[in-house]
Design a protein around this nucleic acid. Sequence first.
DNA 1: CTGAAAGCGCTTACAG
DNA 2: CTGAAAGCGCTTACAG
Lengths: 369, 369
Amino acid sequence: MVALRPRCGQAWAPAGVNGIRQRDKDKMKLKEFAKAVGMSQTTVSRALNGHPEVSEATRARLIEAAHRLGYAPNAHARMLATGHASTIGCVIPIGGRNELVNPIYADFLAGVGEVCARRKFEINLTVVPQDEQAEAYRALKSKGLVGGLIVQFPRRGDPRLALLKRIGLPFVVHGRVGDHPEPYSWVDVNNLRAFERGTQFLLQLGHRQIALLNGDEAHDFALRRREGFLRALAAAGLPAPAPDRMLSGEMSASYGYAGAVALLSSDNPPTAVLTSSIMIAMGVKQALEERGLQPGRDLSIVTFDDDLSYYSNRGAVPVFTAMRSPVREAGRRTAEMLIGLIDAPEGKAVTELLEAELVVGRSTAPPRC
Amino acid sequence: MVALRPRCGQAWAPAGVNGIRQRDKDKMKLKEFAKAVGMSQTTVSRALNGHPEVSEATRARLIEAAHRLGYAPNAHARMLATGHASTIGCVIPIGGRNELVNPIYADFLAGVGEVCARRKFEINLTVVPQDEQAEAYRALKSKGLVGGLIVQFPRRGDPRLALLKRIGLPFVVHGRVGDHPEPYSWVDVNNLRAFERGTQFLLQLGHRQIALLNGDEAHDFALRRREGFLRALAAAGLPAPAPDRMLSGEMSASYGYAGAVALLSSDNPPTAVLTSSIMIAMGVKQALEERGLQPGRDLSIVTFDDDLSYYSNRGAVPVFTAMRSPVREAGRRTAEMLIGLIDAPEGKAVTELLEAELVVGRSTAPPRC
DNA sequence: CTGAAAGCGCTTACAG
DNA sequence: CTGAAAGCGCTTACAG
């Protein structure tokens, strides 16, 4: 019977054939690797970590040898020794208000992941009930699991920012929280400008009766979109639409469908509508088609498009006229920014505003009559 | 000037006001916690880890104190000491064949995350180019970052299984690889049975001209679906449909749209179609409506439904008649199984076959004429 | 440019 | 039931 944990130093040999879990099974350690290449652990470690004391020739040789022998430093030992985790935390809240797992996550995470692979960072994904986020943040910090966090789907006056500052965890917000007493780092798309431009485009086509099917206005992005919408109307000398022309809700196809039905059945239906997501636009389109109506001809649709990879609104002529902003690119930018913050924790808050591009598709035309 | 890394033991005090990154900033360690509660580190550690030597009263008291004082063991020190990582690895391949980030990921991961939260496991997410997966697996193992892996989107004869067995990393496949020389653990939905039942349902309605818009048949699930389709037809004494009645492709709305157009414009259009995803079904529906046709009345649609939370095919009468199988539940089951494997690495391969339920919606009716 | 050795914060065999 | 101490596999100040 082999001891569960051999204490004494032993030569490099993958040991263990019996049923007990072996800690070292085919996993080379620094000590063995250093011996194999005939150098001290110190030098090997320094070479692999890019320290300047080691000559480039030696470094190259050791990197090659590590690759060949399959040696990679144990990440936990490394993090313990250095005292910091090269890991980005992504906390996904579920339940509560938005039970739906936002499809945006998949693409956003892909962008984050791309950057992490390049910069040799890991991603820790945590799924928590909406109301246990604070607890999750604290645990991530006190367990030393992450070096920083990405805050998703911020709300106006979101309490998470203060919490993160208090517990001393660097973070970047994907979006903005509206008014906030102190500067913080964020990556956002210019939602106000996007909806202002979308509205201007419809105005130029001749539309005067324009409705808005917005996202949940508890979120900052939705408020900015409404503001852009109203600003463009005001600039054209038009009054703010009646409340029943400006809806707000969960960005789903069924909301778009129901919203369109409501708009179409009013006394004085709008000739155009702005929607906050492709899913909403699809719901609107469905409602039109079930009534024998046609997007563009009977009701112009301009939508915000997160450019999710599973729903492509591309092609020679896209289905929808859209304000397009790739969420995957936002993921890349956010990760890049957070890694910068983790590497230099005393740095100032950084912000980045991405612009959406207006792409003309087949869902818009001048109003009839 | 404070030293970068204080070596000597020091009393519990969050130190550091200057700009240098402090490793201990407001992070309590076992030593300090033990002192605070007046016990040895050994006893505290054992209590927190649920060892039987500690009385339940003591354990309860220490757990409460840890919570109150905000103490949580450093995860890296813990993993280094125990020699294993309580972490599930999820490797998402991008690029190559399926550039699209599958929307299924979000819901599946949510299911995995739920279980991880409950079982106190972490999730490590890695995004890699399709052809660098092997490298990623090896790195995850040699860095000791994960205790096991979930293999997503298996293909027939998928080489990843052999690789994982070789490098000694427990894994569970979400889906199956078809023929495989050795047993392996998987969680799958009964795709064959689902499509067999869906086809039977259409046959019972009187349909004889049934088409299939399948997913990519390089994947095992798609082959099983086709087999179920053909089996039901054969059992009804019907011949296998012509190749242009059985399409295979990326599960998107545009594929569904194009497929429907092709089917409808043939000499002898089918009266019903089975589709492999809601996205495909939506594309089919769109093609119908643009032609003034109606799902159910003009073409019956039965679809597989992953029950993704962002697209709900629910309600009193669902839009689509569907074989419904919640992918989030599959995520839960997969994680549960993998954790079991990690905890008992010598265990036998486990498998679990989930059944889809047939839900009747508004997209099916007897054929006209 | 190099190495021996301390230390990171835990867990756990060993000895009471 | 409890504790002192070794060890997990790294990094890095310190001393050449």
